[in-house]
Amino acid sequence: MTRPLTKRSLLKAAGWASIAATAALVGCGKKEATPDAASAASTPAATASVAAAAPAGPLLIAFAYVGPVGDAGWTYAHDQARLALEKEYGDKIKTSFVEKVPEGPDAERVLRDMVSQGNKLIFGTTFGYMEPMLKVAADHKDVKFEHGTGYKTAENMRTYDSRTYEGAYMAGVIAGGMTKSNTLGVVGSIPIPEVIRNINAFTLGAQSVNPKVKTKVVWINNWFDPPKETEGAQSLLNQGADVLFQNTDSSAVLQTAEKAGKYAFGWDSDMSKFGPKAHLGSAIINWAPYYIKATKDALEGTWTTGGVWWGVKEGAIDLVSLSDKVPADLKAKVDTIKAGLKDGSFVIWKGPIVGQDGKEVLAKDAVADDKFLGGINFYVKGVDGAVPSSK
């Protein structure tokens, strides 16, 4: 069962007290009364008796989304996984979500409200929630927090991520074989290692089939901003790019390519319907396997802190809905790479790899570890321009 929430109702309260007071009016309208914490703590025998007399209710799970559920990309993919989670566990759980939660102070207010509503497992689905989640987690040790794409943990907060660079690399293979101008374009969101890594992987994939490829990048400094995404895509087309890629959350880049008669990819979810003529394939994330595992851990009492980074091997990453325009040999190459990523026989980040300044960043036959990948702040050879500061 889903308890829909709205960001507006959470944020217009003047302080924590009023947020807590109105929480019961959000979404379902009602929630079952819970014993007063102080009273329960002072009468453990009575609490045990109540617990024994009444069966435990469903596990309440909340999701904080940075974009709208209908973005067709990042947030949409997370919400599809939430729905799969409900299907998997039925009445053992109740889920809710708040969409369009900005990274920063607003996130902390929303997270605290989620706790006040009785949620015991909370997923924060974007990098910028890291510090707010740490603060809230420190104050609520009885709640389990899951932070998507972050790197900081606590005793009741762990991290999870997907190896999106694997999808980016496979898309690059297609792009490198389809480009006529040998110029590819990427609309970047925010210049953090995750995004820079994806740009590099896309370029490396393209160069594996076409060494002449160059990649141009336009940054919009936002995850979801369709007008800016459109503007960035058009700028890349004006610079000669004939295949576009993105690390942003809407379908605007694909739609811009469609109007211009060029090619592009979907990102995070299958976007083929938004630009069927332009669409070459979609690099998707399937969050469902992880959400099902994390919930299982919470339900069974086996949840522990730490972090995971899942990819093709775990069923979290794929390149889907390849266009009929893509030649059979390119499709076969992608299939081989996908199989290799699944069984470990293919490695994307294997040297020699050279930075755009010509210096070797990974020696011949060396394989990058996750620490290396997590700290990437450089462009590989073939990417134009300088990496901007993320500050």
Rank of each mutant, 00 (worst) to 15 (best):
residue 295 T to A: 07
residue 76 Y to L: 09
residue 73 G to Q: 05
residue 390 S to A: 13
residue 330 L to T: 14
residue 115 V to M: 04
residue 174 I to N: 02
residue 310 W to P: 08
residue 44 P to F: 05
residue 276 P to I: 02
residue 173 V to R: 01
residue 46 A to P: 01
residue 208 S to L: 09
residue 190 I to R: 06
residue 142 D to H: 05
residue 317 I to C: 09
residue 180 K to Y: 09
residue 144 K to M: 12
residue 325 K to G: 07
residue 335 D to V: 05
residue 76 Y to I: 06
residue 328 A to L: 09
residue 121 L to N: 11
residue 53 A to D: 08
residue 311 G to C: 11
residue 174 I to T: 02
residue 19 I to Y: 02
residue 113 D to L: 08
residue 15 G to P: 05
residue 44 P to S: 04
residue 280 L to Q: 01
residue 222 N to E: 11
residue 86 E to W: 02
residue 102 P to V: 07
residue 164 T to M: 14
residue 181 S to W: 02
residue 151 Y to D: 14
residue 134 L to P: 01
residue 214 K to H: 11
residue 166 E to S: 10
residue 179 T to E: 03
residue 162 S to A: 14
residue 341 L to N: 09
residue 45 A to E: 15
residue 124 G to Y: 00
residue 103 E to M: 04
residue 247 N to F: 13
residue 38 A to W: 15
residue 383 V to L: 07
residue 336 T to Q: 12
residue 354 V to E: 10
residue 310 W to T: 11
residue 169 Y to D: 04
residue 290 Y to E: 08
residue 176 G to V: 04
residue 154 A to W: 04
residue 273 K to C: 05
residue 246 Q to R: 08
residue 75 T to F: 01
residue 243 V to F: 04
residue 221 N to R: 07
residue 244 L to T: 02
residue 333 K to D: 10
residue 130 M to P: 04
residue 354 V to R: 10
residue 228 K to S: 14
residue 189 S to W: 02
residue 238 N to M: 07
residue 16 W to N: 07
residue 143 V to W: 05
residue 112 R to N: 10
residue 261 G to C: 07
residue 59 L to W: 03
residue 84 A to M: 09
residue 11 L to K: 01
residue 380 V to L: 05
residue 155 E to Q: 06
residue 31 K to V: 14
residue 183 T to K: 13
residue 55 P to I: 11
residue 198 N to Q: 13
residue 254 L to R: 00
residue 389 S to H: 07
residue 247 N to A: 09
residue 113 D to R: 07
residue 83 L to A: 14
residue 364 K to L: 06
residue 142 D to L: 05
residue 267 W to L: 06
residue 26 V to A: 08
residue 166 E to D: 12
residue 198 N to P: 05
residue 67 G to P: 12
residue 325 K to W: 10
residue 243 V to S: 04
residue 182 N to P: 03
residue 309 W to G: 13
residue 384 D to T: 13
residue 342 K to H: 11
residue 255 Q to G: 02
residue 327 P to A: 13
residue 302 T to I: 08
residue 87 K to R: 15
residue 196 I to L: 13
residue 141 K to H: 12
residue 56 A to K: 15
residue 296 K to C: 08
residue 198 N to W: 09
residue 335 D to P: 04
residue 15 G to C: 14
residue 230 T to I: 02
residue 391 K to N: 15
residue 361 V to N: 03
residue 72 A to Q: 14
residue 301 G to I: 01
residue 155 E to D: 14
residue 247 N to E: 10
residue 267 W to Y: 15
residue 284 I to C: 06
residue 95 T to P: 01
residue 103 E to S: 08
residue 60 L to I: 06
residue 348 I to Y: 02
residue 3 R to T: 13
residue 333 K to V: 11
residue 86 E to I: 10
residue 196 I to P: 04
residue 115 V to H: 00
residue 110 V to I: 05
residue 348 I to Q: 03
residue 377 N to P: 06
residue 15 G to M: 14
residue 308 V to G: 07
residue 149 T to G: 02
residue 31 K to R: 15
residue 318 D to K: 13
residue 347 V to A: 09
residue 158 R to H: 11
residue 45 A to N: 12
residue 380 V to T: 08
residue 141 K to L: 15
residue 150 G to Q: 01
residue 138 A to I: 09
residue 10 L to N: 01
residue 278 A to S: 11
residue 67 G to W: 09
residue 150 G to H: 00
residue 374 G to S: 13
residue 370 D to S: 15
residue 280 L to Y: 05
residue 165 Y to M: 01
residue 94 K to A: 11
residue 175 A to N: 12
residue 232 G to V: 09
